[in-house]
Design a protein around this nucleic acid. Structure first.
Lengths: 302, 302
DNA sequence: TCATATTGATTCAATATATGCATTAATGTG
DNA sequence: CACATTAATGCATATATTGAATCAATATGA
């Protein structure tokens, strides 16, 4: 059988070739001379080729041996660099963590964690797939992402969900909008204004529709967009109002935009960590998750 | 100890990674499943790294395994191409023969043999070191040349000599030279003409001087050059005559040049094969020598 | 010239390693 | 929930590797 060749055989050959002596090479390899002698014989037998010309005094390469020497060196080099590289991966000096994260959650959750993580593990690259709830779920299931940050509704038997934070929906509107002056908003108020919604493909929209239809409430959307950030832009430009996760909203010091609590039923989405049940988490990704939970793990109490 | 890794281990890992199954991989390797399983375990233990994520149903790569896979492929590839290359060398589909040959002998001996050899072994490159007797001898001794074609006088304990051909010295002169008309040449005749000789470093000159001084004959050289071919050129231009190995002379159909036998003592050089006694001859070089002897091996009888 | 030292190869017994068979544990599938 | 299929494990056995002792060949130096 071919392929029954050890790297030690190559190393042995290289050393004998370089030193021109079985004796010395054997010492360096911490082997007895006969063991080395037979090792080289085995190698030559395996390759069906004579690599070394031995006299009882000196040893030197045959032409074929001279041809093989640099190749053997390359093989050993590739092998040793592989080991080095894997050590780096194993000790988290190198590597990549891929996170499938809702775009809004990316803004909210990740920056603080990434800062700390990159400080602790400067060699590790972080890749954020800022995709929709459904797509993010798929990426986790098929292993493209190490884990996800997603809504609870994006569930499946193939993933486990760890809640991180409850994110209530609020009414987003301009500070100068008539409704902004009202003390509390009623569902009926929303029939009077132009409502901006995201398309029915969105996980947020599904969540919202399900919650409201249970109460017999129906929203009539005037503008429809794909992304939450776009609807926020339309609100800011004064085209209408939108029902958005609070997390989407800019801070309270924003000039033109503000938000108002919605009436009952209290609608919220639960954001959490999504992990594949079939793919095991890489140790590097686990490091990131540990840090993530340390930052946000208690937030569901709020 | 590291380096105790077989190429079969790499092959096994690659196959399991590609097929995603120990079972199938074991079949393809003509191994039992447990044997393969343990082989991969050994590999992982050796590298101190987890390469494959096993469930009882499926098997797939860990991130580190995915990183290692292409490296393993490269190692196997290098190994297999090495084997192929050595097979080509061993079967004389590739290779080089280096011959340290006297320049005159190169013209005389080699063309016919090279023609036949290149036809039989079209992949083999032939390198001719057309150097002086002394230098050619050195090249054979230190292994730069596989063998030499040289004079018998270029001897040494470190080489063996196989005579091929006896090459007598003749007087080279122009057809219109006064001496050309004489029936036989006497040594005294040469005192009347301008003699062109090669320098005393030359093996030919040494041979000649030694043979003549034994008889009390001394030549007075007028022109001195380094190479036989140059002296022949000077003869042709009419500057004088030269004592040259017959082998150097052009064929009998030459217009202006001709040669005459010299008187006793009959001076000749023996041309032959020079082989190193310490370096063994490569099998490819042996092929060439076989062919060379087939062409010229009987010539010493003449 | 001959004893000596050093080289690589060989012999042999002990050990280490790899293998196959039978079996177990785990887990998708119908 | 039984069944089939997967990878791992226990164990006996075959194979390979090893070092110590020894051999054969050959430079070296007196």
């Amino acid at each position: 059988m071919t392929h029954r060749l050890e790297f030690l055989d190559l190393q042995a050959f290289i050393l004998v070739a370089e030193l021109g002596s079985f004796h010395e090479a054997a010492q360096r390899l911490h082997l007895s001379q006969p063991a080395l002698s037979r090792r080289i014989q085995k190698l030559e037998e395996l390759l069906e080729v004579e690599l070394l010309e031995r006299t009882t005094r000196r040893t030197h390469l045959t032409p074929i041996g001279a041809d093989f020497l640099p190749r053997a060196r390359r093989m050993i080099e590739e092998y040793e660099s592989s080991i080095l590289n894997m050590r780096e991966l194993a000790t988290h000096q190198k590597g990549t963590v891929t996170i499938a994260c809702l775009p809004t959650a990316a803004f909210y959750f990740l920056p603080s964690v990434i800062r700390g993580f990159s400080e602790a593990w400067p060699g590790i690259r972080i890749r954020i797939l800022d995709v929709s709830a459904n797509e993010g779920l798929q990426r986790v299931i098929n292993g493209e992402a190490d884990f996800g940050i997603n809504m609870f509704s994006a569930q499946s038997a193939e993933v486990s969900f760890t809640p991180l934070l409850r994110d209530p929906f609020v009414l987003a509107l301009r500070s100068d909008h008539p409704l902004a002056a009202k003390k509390s908003i009623q569902w009926a108020d929303l029939e009077q204004v132009r409502l901006i919604t995201v398309s029915r493909d969105s996980g947020n929209r599904t969540l919202l529709d399900n919650a409201l239809s249970a109460e017999g409430i129906r929203l009539n959307s005037f503008y429809e967009v794909q992304h939450l950030s776009t609807s926020l832009g339309l609100v800011e430009s004064g085209l209408g109002v939108a029902i958005l996760p609070k997390m989407t909203m800019p801070g309270p010091d924003h000039d033109t935009l503000c938000s108002r609590e919605l009436p009952e039923p209290r609608i919220q989405r639960t954001i959490g960590l999504v992990r594949s049940s079939s793919h095991s988490i890489s140790s590097t990704a686990q490091l990131f998750i540990d840090m993530l939970l340390e930052h946000w793990g208690n937030s569901t109490d709020s």
